Amino acid sequence: MKVRDVMASKGSSEVFTVLPDATVAELLDRLADLNVGALVVSADGSSMVGIVSERDIVRKLRGTSNARETKIADIMTTDVRVCAPDDSFAALMVMMTEHRVRHVPVLEDGKVVGVLSIGDAVKHRMEQLEFERDQLTSYVAGG
């Protein structure tokens, strides 16, 4: 199973981005409007300079005065864990677990072609397990 398969089962490969010079106030509105937990930070909408997540907001703005006016570039994560469409799904799961990341951008030829969340990965794994269960049940029942 490849990352590409998970992206296909997700149904949408739309990548939501935010500009590095946007403010945290703008970020909060965008996260809420899109109902997502992270955005790729990009100046042009396809190349990535970082990622900003709910965790970044909580960890990096604690105790900051006028936090809503802070620029995304000041709080984003720049050491981003990424994967490629042809990477194995198992490797993606290991990376997310070992590095404790919830959102992984998918890069192809240097461009962001998707973002997979831990929720996407768990949902896909549950679907795999349900399929295997159904196959075993059918086999045992003689069908």
Rank of each mutant, 00 (worst) to 15 (best):
27 L>D: 06
29 D>P: 00
29 D>M: 09
30 R>A: 10
31 L>I: 09
32 A>H: 13
32 A>R: 14
35 N>A: 09
35 N>Y: 04
35 N>G: 05
35 N>C: 05
36 V>D: 13
36 V>M: 10
36 V>T: 12
37 G>Q: 12
38 A>V: 05
38 A>K: 07
39 L>E: 05
39 L>W: 01
39 L>C: 07
40 V>L: 11
41 V>C: 04
42 S>L: 05
42 S>N: 09
42 S>Y: 03
43 A>N: 01
44 D>R: 00
44 D>G: 00
44 D>Q: 00
45 G>H: 04
45 G>N: 08
45 G>E: 04
45 G>S: 09
45 G>V: 06
48 M>H: 13
48 M>F: 11
50 G>D: 04
51 I>N: 11
53 S>W: 07
53 S>L: 10
54 E>L: 11
54 E>K: 14
56 D>M: 09
56 D>Y: 05
57 I>N: 02
58 V>I: 15
58 V>Q: 01
58 V>A: 15
59 R>Y: 03
59 R>C: 06
59 R>S: 14
59 R>A: 14
61 L>Y: 08
62 R>Q: 03
62 R>H: 02
62 R>W: 12
63 G>F: 06
63 G>R: 07
64 T>C: 04
64 T>A: 10
65 S>V: 11
66 N>P: 00
67 A>T: 00
67 A>Y: 12
67 A>N: 00
68 R>Q: 03
68 R>W: 06
69 E>L: 09
69 E>F: 00
70 T>F: 01
71 K>I: 01
72 I>M: 06
72 I>Q: 01
73 A>F: 01
73 A>W: 01
73 A>E: 14
74 D>R: 13
75 I>E: 09
75 I>F: 05
76 M>G: 07
76 M>T: 04
77 T>P: 13
77 T>C: 13
77 T>Y: 06
78 T>A: 05
78 T>V: 15
79 D>G: 02
79 D>W: 03
80 V>W: 12
81 R>K: 14
82 V>Q: 13
84 A>P: 00
84 A>N: 04
85 P>A: 07
85 P>L: 07
86 D>V: 02
86 D>Y: 04
86 D>R: 10
87 D>F: 11
89 F>H: 12
90 A>C: 00
90 A>W: 02
90 A>V: 08
91 A>F: 05
91 A>T: 14
92 L>V: 08
92 L>M: 14
92 L>D: 07
93 M>F: 08
93 M>Y: 02
94 V>F: 03
95 M>C: 03
95 M>L: 15
96 M>D: 06
96 M>H: 10
96 M>T: 12
98 E>H: 05
